[in-house]
């Protein structure tokens, strides 16, 4: 893989509110995205993946850690320098209805995206090219519409066009597909593939859907309660997941072609006090897990996990390794 265009280094964020217990949303997370790469960040709601996205976009300030875009730290930038630099990293959000100023037309939205803080007027041709790239053709039909006059799928395509307008190095897409029907989902993924082929943009795709992660990503990072539980090449993570949480996520995927492993209807879970955050739900939890927080260790080529019970791939003999392969890894995009 080529060098990283986006590096997240040891990011941490705790939310404190009056009369509220502090919430450790992101804890010491490091992640890289290379040019032309797609990294899927997978986790349940409350795992901190959306907070991580906002940290990476520098929409909120981390308590610790750095965001490095094309080798330069966004953390040390201020004012105009920051404003120019941040155009290199663009978001796509889950809800296309909330993603646009409802009082601006498509023309106004796109010209804003193309110009940024600059003064020069965006050309009609450039806007038309952007719209054509996301299959909103002919441009004349869309330029003077308001976002609410578009369908949900069209709006999400417009969001892709807007994100591409500043020619970013990375796009951070926070659940961009979860509101979309399956036929729209395929359409949006195809667009993302085309855009990547054309511009070499890197994607950090945040999703709760293992199915999408499997089909679309080169690498997968699994987040649980603010930490990276496991990360590695998609094929390797899917074929031989190292963390019990990853295995659980894979087991419950409702695929059309493979019977999901039977989940038992478990009673209420208690929260972890100390040790590994996953131990209350973990079938392998031991005394060590309850006391000691596991570190993220590299156990295979580019494949790491934060689990006391995960053994290196060369090690063999570990009971976890003999688990059946759940979903064959398909290295995509």
């Amino acid at each position: 893989m080529s060098t990283a265009v986006l590096e997240l280094r040891h990011l941490s964020k705790t939310f404190r509110g009056r009369g509220m217990a502090p919430v450790r949303a992101v804890i010491d997370v490091s992640l890289e995205v290379a040019a032309g790469e797609c990294v899927a960040l997978v986790g349940e709601s409350g795992s901190g993946k959306s907070t991580l996205a906002r940290l990476a976009l520098r929409l909120i300030e981390p308590d610790a850690g750095e965001v490095i875009l094309r080798g330069q730290s966004l953390m040390r930038m201020r004012g105009g320098t920051l404003r120019r630099a941040r155009r290199g990293i663009q978001p796509i959000f889950q809800d296309p209805a909330a993603s646009f100023n409802p009082r601006r037309t498509v023309r106004s939205l796109l010209s804003q995206a193309i110009e940024g803080a600059g003064r020069e007027r965006a050309g009609e041709a450039e806007m038309a090219a952007l719209l054509a790239a996301v299959m909103l053709k002919p441009a004349a039909e869309y330029l003077d519409r308001y976002p609410h006059e578009l369908s949900g799928g069209q709006r999400q395509r417009l969001a892709i066009a807007r994100a591409l307008a500043p020619r970013p190095a990375v796009i951070i897409a926070d659940e961009p597909l979860s509101g979309a029907d399956v036929s729209i989902r395929a359409q949006l993924l195809n667009l993302l593939i085309d855009m990547q082929a054309r511009s070499g943009v890197g994607y950090l795709l945040i999703t709760h859907d293992m199915h999408v992660a499997r089909a679309f990503s080169h690498r997968i990072a699994v987040m649980y309660r603010g930490r990276i539980a496991e990360r590695g090449p998609t094929g390797s993570v899917l074929a031989a997941p190292l963390h019990p949480y990853t295995r659980q996520l894979l087991a419950v995927v409702h695929s059309l072609d493979r019977l999901p492993r039977d989940a038992t209807a478990k009673p209420v879970r208690s929260a972890a006090g100390t040790g590994c955050g996953f131990h209350p739900r973990c079938p392998l939890a031991s005394e060590t897990c309850r006391k000691l927080e596991p570190m993220l260790r590299e156990l295979g080529p580019g494949h790491s996990a934060a689990c006391h019970h995960a053994a290196s791939k060369e090690g063999g003999g570990d009971p976890i390794q003999s688990q059946p392969q759940l979903i064959p890894g398909i290295n995509a995009c």
């Binding site: 404003r83 990293i89 663009q90 959000f93 909330a98 993603s99 100023n101 804003q112 995206a113 969001a159």
Partner: peptide, 14 residues
């Protein structure tokens, strides 16, 4: 706190 403000901020608008 709406998403479109975050999107516009990411475009480098003052």
């Amino acid at each position: 706190q709406l998403d479109f403000i975050a999107a516009v901020r990411s475009l480098g608008i003052p």
